[in-house]
């Protein structure tokens, strides 16, 4: 059914769908080839969902699945255009799970211009602090840097240790030294292991061992492809 509906779409709509699926459209590709690739990618997505979703998410997914194949229209959202970024210096840190945090930032236009003018000397980067306590005291914390391109606007950060507090500075390195452009909130990654003795029968009954097994089977970062591609 999906194959037939794809056939009805014009080339530019297919190209957009292909882009959404991460498919590179070659100039020599014909419509049938492109449709095959899109169908294949959609099927792969479906298999991935089946493998990664737990019982609650599978049920929730069904709630919204009123069609039996994927919705193909990509036109409806085009009435509303949101800006790519805001004219502000800010960085926000969102904890995704104990090992990964998502951070996004905005840079003032003036800041971007001065960065571009100063290139190659001005290098934008993230400094990720592992906090010793809840107070922001970078001098007391361990940190690591992630180099960025001036066009980057977000990043998934791998947090080295669980049960710690993290904070990120958006910084630029000039010849004259480093400058902090924005500082994020602090995110606290939760502990992921429970110290339990064999005598703690209730823990076993509570299926904590099942949880641990589940995590190993379904490795956590399932969607960080864009980030990996972004690493220089």
């Amino acid at each position: 059914m999906i194959h037939q509906r794809l056939k009805l779409l014009p080339w530019d709509a297919l190209e957009k769908l292909a882009g959404d699926e991460g498919i590179k459209v070659d100039s020599g590709m014909d419509k049938e080839e492109l449709i095959e690739l899109i169908v294949e990618a959609m099927e792969e997505d479906q298999v991935e969902q089946e493998l990664t979703n737990n019982a609650s998410m599978k049920l929730k997914e069904r709630k919204y699945k009123i069609l039996q194949d994927q919705e193909l229209s990509s036109q409806v959202a085009e009435d509303y255009v949101l800006p790519e970024e805001y004219n502000d210096n800010r960085i926000v840190l969102l904890l995704r799970d104990p090992s990964w945090a998502y951070t996004y930032w905005d840079l003032k236009k003036s800041e971007q211009e001065s960065l571009l003018e100063s290139r190659p000397a001005g290098q934008l980067f993230l400094r990720v602090y592992e906090m010793i306590d809840s107070c922001h005291s970078p001098g007391l914390a361990d940190f690591f840097d992630i180099p960025l391109d001036v066009s980057d606007r977000s990043w998934y950060v791998n947090l080295p240790r669980t049960g710690m507090r993290y904070c990120i500075d958006l910084m630029v390195l000039y010849r004259s030294g480093e400058k902090i452009l924005a500082r994020s909130n602090i995110a606290c990654s939760p502990a992921t292991t429970v110290e339990y003795a064999a005598a703690d029968a209730l823990f076993f009954d509570s299926n904590i061992d099942a949880f641990e097994r589940l995590k190993k089977e379904k490795a956590i970062p399932q969607r960080i492809i864009a980030v990996q591609e972004g690493i220089n």
Binding site: N54, M57, V92, R96, P98, Y102, D106, R223, A226
Partner: peptide, 29 residues
């Protein structure tokens, strides 16, 4: 309780991932 959800693997990966993370810049703003 600790940071948690009933989503996959027990945290936020269903609501914060590469397919939807773009929304938070706008929601927070």
């Amino acid at each position: 309780p600790s940071f948690s959800s009933w989503g996959n693997n027990g945290y936020a990966e269903v609501w914060i991932n590469s397919k939807n993370d773009w929304i938070y810049r706008h929601l927070h703003k």
